[in-house]
């Protein structure tokens, strides 16, 4: 018999933050995945909203592409406001 498919679970906590990945579980369909996620991941008021997505539907960047994807940002420090020193006399900027 085939296994129930794997689902990734995302929970939004009480504090108005974005949904955050918390783990995975097996369920026959989305409805059951949400019910199971309630039991497995929110037994202590950890969340007010649940998303589930089939693990097979998630596409991820590959660790081998890390340099190509993320290194270009390293030499663009001017994207951070602290790159520009401001005179002490200048306020509210």
């Amino acid at each position: 018999m085939s296994e129930w498919p794997l689902w990734e679970v995302f929970i939004r906590s009480q504090h108005g933050l974005a949904h955050k990945h918390v783990g995975s579980l097996h369920a026959a369909d989305a409805e059951m995945a949400i019910k199971n996620a309630r039991d497995v991941y929110t037994r202590r008021n950890e969340g007010i909203s649940i998303w589930v997505a089939r693990s097979a539907d998630i596409h991820a960047s590959s660790p081998g592409d890390r340099a190509a994807l993320f290194e270009p940002a390293n030499d663009k420090v001017y994207r951070h406001p602290t790159f520009f020193p401001m005179p002490d006399e200048v306020k509210h900027i």
């Binding site: 018999m1 085939s2 129930w4 026959a28 369909d29 059951m32």
Partner: peptide
């Protein structure tokens, strides 16, 4: 086992 099988059959049918 029958519960796991029934749940899959139900999900597929739906």
């Amino acid at each position: 086992a029958w519960v796991r099988e029934a749940a899959i059959a139900h999900a597929e049918k739906r």
